[in-house]
Design a protein around this nucleic acid. Structure first.
Lengths: 233, 233
DNA sequence: GTGATTTAAAAGTCATACTTTTGTGGACCT
DNA sequence: AGGTCCACAAAAGTATGACTTTTAAATCAC
């Protein structure tokens, strides 16, 4: 089973999306709907619906009389969670992971600063709880448990920022952190300095110390980037 | 003519996308495909393709036996350029403009810093050229000409950062700047301080002064946010 | 009332026929 | 040789109708 049995549409979409983002079809390649229908053994209807979706992601462009042409990577909507997943699953995972981490390093400090301004008491409490959870699981090869708290922590910060664009990056951050834990060669225990920083961010947010929350989060980001340089140069 | 005569699919997609993002269908509303087909006077085929695209944007969810349900705004893929356009054209343009500006304020300084590291000589020259163009058009009610240079300037910075995620925000920035010029009540001439800052950013990038480029761009961002607070409180 | 069973509503899939756009190649002219 | 125009055909776009599958909800049995 290549993918879940979630319908023909999903299956074809997944296969094609993965193949294209993996660079199996060089930009400019031309696909024809009939040919695809035959290849996947589905009706042209299904293929057309898939093509329309891929088109909305700027992975392909469909033109009459010529066919469906694969677009160059610069066109792709790299913010589409689906595209992100495909790319993380494919060949240029390292590049993707890096550019996402750089994005995080830009966004999260600002988000943390805003969170310090706007976080509700409940969010503050939740944040502290996750930070403590990170401390508790930071030793003894409990990477999976640590990951859960880490993801939750960053999600709360992004949500508490009150900015919808930031909030929607929660899934991206989750993917990056999960990717780091699962596919990157990683140390058996997370960096203690990073753990401490998370605790201090939680404190700064609760104390409404915008500048400090931003500064500390920036430190976390720098750490993440350095880690990436060390482990995947 | 509501939209360009670019095909039935495009027309229906545009209408529905606009309506949904405008909040005309409260979250949880249910649409039925054959009803839509009838309403737009197109075949079910066309409607289904549109639904599939809207689904990939997380604007709707299609389930058997129940129909196509409109998703709450928190689900929407707010990074999809299409969604951004729809929202900017619709009712919550102000909110959208604000959250995009906040995003810019996070991303662009970091992008400028990276650009200072990586910009090619050609990009440096181009950047300077655009900055000078901004100076030249900053007086005498030449807002349109100014806008062109402004957009070009920020696009170059984002591209020169060498990060694909940043580069793809060029269109977003263009939309925001255009929106500010066209729909916001704006001063007859741009803020002279902002113009100067752009020139200095260009200089910093050429001088490979990462920290300065980042700092100056942050100043521009702060200015943009303040402007938003003054004009659309 | 609770749980199993039937029912029907809506999306999902398929096959086919037809329309529209548009590259391409060839005829024709200069 | 080179350009213009035109007819052809290829491929996507659209429409229609029949059939399948899922599943919410109504019905029935206990």
């Amino acid at each position: 089973m290549t993918t879940r049995a979630r319908g023909l549409h999903t299956h074809v979409l997944e296969s094609l999306g993965l193949a294209i983002t993996a660079g199996e079809y060089p930009p400019g390649s031309v696909l024809r709907t009939d040919e695809l229908a035959q290849r996947f053994d589905v009706s042209r209807t299904v293929v057309r619906e898939v093509i329309r979706v891929l088109e909305s992601m700027y992975l392909v462009e469909s033109r009459r009389r010529v066919g469906v042409t694969v677009q160059p990577a610069e066109q792709w909507n790299v913010y589409d969670p689906q595209v992100i997943r495909w790319r993380l699953a494919g060949a240029d995972r390292p590049r993707q992971l890096r550019s996402l981490t750089v994005l995080r390093s830009a966004v999260e400090p600002v988000a943390a600063g805003l969170a310090a301004l706007r976080a509700t008491p409940a969010q503050c409490a939740d944040l502290t709880e996750q930070a403590l959870g990170m401390v508790a699981t930071s030793r003894g090869r409990q990477l999976e448990a640590y990951l859960v708290h880490d993801v939750a922590f960053h999600r709360i910060v992004l949500n508490a920022s009150g900015n919808e664009m930031f909030a929607r990056l929660g899934d991206v951050v989750a993917e990056v952190l999960a990717g780091r834990t699962h596919h990157q060669v990683m140390f058996p225990d997370p960096d203690p300095a990073a753990v401490t920083l998370h605790v201090r961010v939680a404190e700064a947010v609760r104390a409404r110390d915008t500048a400090e929350a931003e500064r500390l989060t920036r430190e976390i980001a720098v750490g993440a980037l350095q880690e990436l340089d060390v482990l995947a140069p």
